[in-house]
Design a protein around this nucleic acid. Structure first.
Lengths: 216, 216
DNA sequence: TCTCCCTATATTGTTAACATGATAAGTATA
DNA sequence: TATACTTATCATGTTAACAATATAGGGAGA
C-alpha cells in the first residue's frame, strides 16, 4: 500500500500530457480522492509536489489549476528552454553513442514520414513525434539534470507546442529542422547543432503571437 | 496561523545557506517539530517541497539529508549551471538598467575590496559577496524563471562554492573575473559576457577535483 | 563463537477529525 | 431597490492517532 502520492502525481501528469487537463483547467481534489479511493493527504502531497515543480498553481479558495503562463511568463520560459535544448543538442553532438544515433535517426525519420504522408493532418500525433525527437536529443546529451529540466520546462510550454502544429506548413518545417539538426549532431558539429536547435525551439515572435492568440 | 509549512521551508533553507546544515547532513524531523511547536504534517510538507526542488533527499528509514551530489552529479549540474549563468550575463548585457548597473558596480567593488584588503582571509565572507555578484547579474537579466533556476542550482552546488575560496589566490582571481565580466556587461558586449561568465562558473577540472577531494 | 530467526521498536505513509478563515447568500434597513 | 451586515457553509491548514513495514538487537541453536 505504498506510494499513493506517486500514483496521484502520475495520474495528474498523465492527464496533463494526454491533453485531458488543459492549462488553466481546474484539478478537482474531491474527484481525485474518490477516483483513487484515498484520503486528502496523498492528494494534497501530490499537489504540493506539482506546485513546487511549477506545473500547477494553487489559488487560495479557488482550487488548483494547471499552470497557464501569461505572455511574459511564456516568453521567459521559452528563452531559457531554447538555451537548454540548444545545450542538449551541442552535447549530443559530442557524446552521441551508436545506440542514440540509431534512436535519433528513427525519431527524425518518423517526423519526416508523418510530414510526407499526412502533411498538416493529425497535428496531435505529430506533437508526440516531436516530443520523441527532443527527448532522444536530450537523452543523447548524457546529462540527467539537463534532461530533467528540459522535461519540466517542456511540460509548462506544452499547450503552446500542441497548438503550434495546427498552422499550415508547421509540421513540414519542423520535420526539416529536425533533419538538419540531426545531421549536425551526427556530423559532430557541436556548436552549429547547438545554434540550430536553439533557433528551432525559440521560434520567432510572430509565431509566438499566433499561438498566444489561439490559446487566449 | 497560516503558513507553517513555509516557515519550516525557510528555516531549513536558512540553515543550508548559513552553513549550519552541510551537504549530507541529517535533517532531524523531530527537532524541527519541537523547535517550531508544530505537528509532523507541516514539516513533512516542507520536506516534500525541498525534495521536489532537489535540495534534499529522503532516504527510506534513514531520514532526510541535504543533497550531496556525487562526482558525476556535481559535474552534470555544473555543466548546466554554467550555461544558465552565461545566458544571464548575456541577457544582462542587453537589458542592463541604470539601477542594476549601480548594483552591479557595487557588488564588483565589494569583491575587489575584499580581495585587496583581506586577500585569502575570511573565505566565507567572500562567498557571500560572490553570491551577491551572481544574484545581481541574474536579476539584471530580467527573466524570473532563469533567476529561479540559477538560485536552485546554486544551492545544490553551494558546498563546493564555499570550499572553493579556501584555496590560495582563489578570491583574487574570482574578483578579477567579476570585474572583467561586469565590464563586458556594461559595455553591452552580450556574447563576450556570456562566454566569460560561463568560463568563470565552469571552472576547470583540476579545480573541480581539488574541491571534490576536500568535500569527500 | 557464529549464524539465523524472531521479536520489539521506530519510522513513515495514511486516515479522520478538528479549527480557522474566507466567501457567498440572505435578510433587513435606508 | 440597493447596500450593508450577519450568518452559514465550504475550503484549507493542521493535529493526533492508526497501520504497516523494515531494521536492529537479542536469543537460541548449531
Amino acid at each position: 500500500m505504498a506510494g499513493q502520492t506517486e500514483t496521484i502525481v502520475a495520474a495528474i501528469l498523465g492527464a496533463i500530457e494526454g491533453g485531458s487537463l488543459r492549462p488553466g483547467g481546474l484539478i478537482d481534489e474531491q474527484e481525485l480522492i474518490e477516483a483513487h479511493g484515498v484520503s486528502r493527504t496523498p492528494v494534497r502531497e501530490a499537489m504540493i509536489q506539482l506546485e513546487t515543480a511549477g506545473l500547477i498553481r494553487r489559488l487560495p479558495r479557488k482550487g488548483a489549476v494547471v499552470f497557464k503562463p501569461t505572455l511574459a511568463e511564456f516568453l521567459a520560459i521559452l528563452e531559457v528552454h531554447a538555451k537548454l535544448e540548444g545545450q542538449a543538442a551541442g552535447l549530443a553532438a559530442r557524446r552521441l553513442s551508436a545506440a542514440h544515433a540509431a534512436a535519433l535517426e528513427a525519431a527524425v525519420a518518423a517526423c519526416e514520414d508523418h510530414a510526407a504522408r499526412l502533411g498538416d493532418a493529425e497535428p496531435d500525433r505529430y506533437y508526440q513525434l516531436n516530443m520523441d525527437f527532443h527527448r532522444v536529443v536530450a537523452e543523447a546529451a548524457g546529462n540527467p539534470f539537463l534532461l530533467e529540466m528540459i522535461k519540466t520546462n517542456a511540460r509548462k510550454l506544452m499547450a503552446y507546442y500542441r497548438a503550434r502544429y495546427h498552422y499550415a506548413g508547421a509540421i513540414g518545417a519542423s520535420a526539416r529542422d529536425h533533419r538538419a539538426i540531426a545531421a549536425l549532431i551526427v556530423a559532430r558539429r557541436s556548436e552549429e547543432a547547438e545554434a540550430a536547435m536553439a533557433r528551432h525551439v525559440q521560434f520567432d515572435q510572430v509565431t509566438a503571437m499566433d499561438l498566444l492568440a489561439v490559446m487566449g
